[in-house]
């Protein structure tokens, strides 16, 4: 929990630093934001580890097939990365690039969801086949 406050403080400091650096050149500030975002993601990964273990336990309990969960986890990860990348692009004045990343993420997530859509179709066929 203490590391959360440390990270929050660090992020606020980097914002101030970024504002100061932006006077000399916008590039420095963008690089700083990228670095800090990566650091925050690394800290987040440490916190996510026990949650992933818990999710594994839930998976064991619910006897879910991997085909159902893997696309969801991948889609969530892609969503997070796309969100951060898009925000960085927007902050650095490249909103169009940010939007492109968002669109790319949507396309990739839809591609990942294809097995799920097939499962839904199979489920419908099994149900309607009983009629």
């Amino acid at each position: 929990m203490s590391s959360f406050f440390q990270v929050a403080g660090g992020v606020l400091l980097s914002v101030i630093l970024g504002l100061t650096l932006s006077k000399y050149g916008k590039d420095f500030s963008v690089v700083l934001i990228l670095l800090v975002s990566c650091m925050v993601l690394a800290v987040m990964a440490a916190y996510l580890e026990p949650i992933i273990d818990f999710v594994g336990e839930l998976l064991r309990l619910s006897e879910l097939q991997n085909e159902l969960l893997t696309p969801v986890l991948k889609a969530t990860a892609i969503g997070i990365v796309a969100e951060i990348a898009s925000l960085i692009c927007t902050d650095s004045g490249n909103a169009a690039l940010g939007k492109s990343i968002q669109l790319l993420a949507v396309a990739v997530i839809l591609w990942l969801a294809l097995p799920l859509l097939r499962s839904l179709l199979e489920l419908m066929q099994r149900m309607l086949g009983n009629i």
Binding site: L68, G79, I109
Partner: peptide, 14 residues
Amino acid sequence: TEKNGIVEFAGCIA
């Protein structure tokens, strides 16, 4: 993230 629909979608199929 703004793409949470897939989670509920997969949950419903499961």
